[in-house]
Design a protein around this nucleic acid. Structure first.
Length: 286
DNA sequence: TTCCAGGAGAGAG
DNA sequence: CTCTCTCATGGA
């Protein structure tokens, strides 16, 4: 057990439940999840995080990796000051304060959002759990068992058919092809981490199954590009009904968010998205 | 039974 | 460039 403290402006619950990460589940006050090859459980008490890991051989490294994973060094109050421009955002920030955009593993994030298309969050979690159980390695902690997310190599050693049996539907071939692209170095993930948002997005979209929205999610949730704006049905509804009061194209929605919220579009979008999806603006209900 | 979900590809115009 | 149709799956 290690303790990380002090942490300020952090809320573990909202951070793990806002639709950016799909592998965590809560049980008896603890959040269980696999990060890399370690099975973790985490509990927040005020300004402390208590963490147990299946691998506590290097506590300092564990602490540092979680600090980065949850992006605990970022100045959230400054971001709130910049994006808090109306009562919609004020309401969202008040309800979800401490929700942070994470720095997730690039391959897992890329795969997860390929699977996310035209689906819903519970089923996305189910698909990811199934392929991890089927192709990943088991790790255990305190009697709980979970599985590492399969590497691209593990997936290329299976088949599109086996992936489809995990309930991926037509997305199975997308994930299989992406795995091949990474294994064959057609897409160099380490190189991608050092590129600008526009370059990264363009590279990601060269893969079949990754379009505008999924590329934005990957860039925002695992590459640190805070200017990325994923436009899904919720963000579209928020833009059209709460702000623009009319139908709008993706181009117009992006332009509005950029002009109105400035640099930290990713955070603005995530607070509105999470609040709208879990609590709800009454104005969204026609 | 139909509709919808953190969409994207292919084709038509 | 934009619009439309289709693509598996499972829960409501």
């Amino acid at each position: 057990m290690i303790e990380i403290r002090p942490i300020s402006d952090f809320n573990l619950y909202h951070t793990l439940n806002c639709g950016q990460a799909f592998r965590w589940h809560e049980d008896n006050g603890w959040f269980y999840g696999v990060v890399g090859t370690s099975f973790l459980r985490i509990c927040q008490k005020g300004e402390s995080l208590f963490v147990e890991s299946s691998d506590e051989s290097d506590p300092i490294k564990l602490q540092q990796s979680l600090w980065y994973y949850f992006d605990l060094g970022r100045d959230l109050p400054r971001i709130f000051d910049l994006i808090n421009k109306d009562h919609y955002m004020e309401t969202s920030i008040e309800a979800c304060r401490g929700m942070r955009i994470m720095n997730q593993d690039l391959w897992e994030c890329l795969s997860s959002f390929i699977l996310s298309q035209n689906s819903n969050i519970p089923r996305i979690k189910q698909m990811i759990r199934k392929i991890s159980e089927t192709f990943g390695n088991s790790v255990s902690l305190n009697g709980h068992v979970d599985y590492t997310f399969p590497t691209p190599e593990m997936i290329t050693q299976s088949s599109v058919d086996q992936l489809a049996q995990c309930g991926l539907g037509y997305r199975a071939s997308y994930l299989f092809n992406a795995s091949i692209a990474v294994v064959e170095k057609e897409l160099d993930l380490d190189w991608l981490k050092n590129q600008s948002y526009s370059v990264a997005k363009q590279e990601l979209m060269s893969l079949k199954g990754i379009g505008d929205k999924v590329a934005a999610c990957i860039s925002l949730f695992s590459l640190g590009h805070g200017e990325a704006l994923p436009i899904d049905v919720w963000v579209r509804k928020i833009a059209e009904r709460l702000y623009l009061k009319r139908k709008a194209s993706k181009r117009q929605i992006l332009e509005f968010f950029h002009d109105y919220f400035g640099e930290h579009i990713g955070y603005a979008q995530q607070y509105l998205f999470h609040y709208a999806r879990t609590i709800g603006f009454k104005e969204l209900l026609d």
